[in-house]
């Protein structure tokens, strides 16, 4: 058994090696679990939208609740202008949520516990939001760094802080999700190891901890997907509705 709690995060190649020159694009267990998560979403959405009924079936109700949940989240944080980005936010939220939840299954792999995955998503959002901001407002978008109602003396300092905080958005966004996932799963693994090593005599305490932590981690899995999506909405709001 793997005593090292970090072994669960190992990425290894599945199937043949796919290489373009020096670039290794091989299919890995991470790719597999991305695919599994996407397939779960697709199958779920397929069956939940298959029979459109006036009085929804249970599965149809879930997808409609999900739709309304994301729609409300977007309209609350970014207003009506963000409507065209609804499919993206919806996909993002559902994908992260399902990846996190699939990661909760024993022997599975948590896609979102890898910094590179969350960083790619965060960077894409950061760049896209910045482009949207400049497309909508031109150079006036730079005024996001200059809050109104700030004393002139403090203005240079505030502006620098604003720029730093803007540039650190992708980092904070990606690290938040990655760190939460990694820490949670590491902790679960550690407590799981304690159960084994303490055996029948002393293993009950870490086992009960493990059970409690599993509940907590499911909550975290949902919460982090929600936080990721809602922060995306907030960044989008900054780009769409420029006012300070």
């Amino acid at each position: 058994m793997a005593a090292n709690p970090m072994v669960q995060f190992n990425v290894y190649r599945i199937g043949p090696e796919i290489k373009f020159g020096n670039i290794d694009l091989s299919f890995t267990n991470a790719s597999l679990f991305m695919l599994i998560s996407a397939s779960i979403i697709t199958v779920f959405l397929y069956f939940s939208t298959k029979n459109k009924r006036l009085i929804p079936s249970k599965i149809q109700l879930i997808s409609e609740l999900l739709y309304n949940f994301v729609a409300k989240m977007i309209s609350d944080t970014a207003g009506t202008k963000a409507k065209p980005y609804f499919p993206f936010i919806f996909s993002l939220f559902v994908f992260i949520l399902v990846c996190n939840m699939v990661g909760m299954l024993p022997y599975s792999f948590t896609v979102t516990s890898h910094i590179i995955v969350t960083l790619v998503m965060a960077l894409f959002i950061f760049i896209a939001v910045t482009i949207i901001g400049f497309l909508k407002h031109g150079l006036k978008y730079l005024s996001i760094f200059v809050p109104s109602g700030v004393p002139v003396v403090l203005l240079p300092l505030i502006t620098i802080i604003e720029i730093i905080s803007y540039l650190s958005r992708p980092v904070s966004l990606s690290v938040r999700l990655f760190a939460n996932m990694m820490a949670g799963h590491t902790m679960l693994k550690v407590f799981g190891g304690f159960v084994i090593s303490l055996g029948l005599v002393g293993g009950w305490l870490p086992l009960s901890f493990s059970v409690a932590l599993t509940g907590l981690e499911i909550l975290v899995a949902f919460l982090q997907a929600y936080v990721f999506a809602i922060l995306t909405c907030i960044y989008l709001n900054d780009a769409l509705n420029l006012h300070h």
Binding site: T28, I116, V117, V120
Partner: peptide
């Protein structure tokens, strides 16, 4: 596998 993960993502 950073590139592979990004690519498949």
């Amino acid at each position: 596998y950073w590139l592979s993960q990004s690519f498949w993502l």
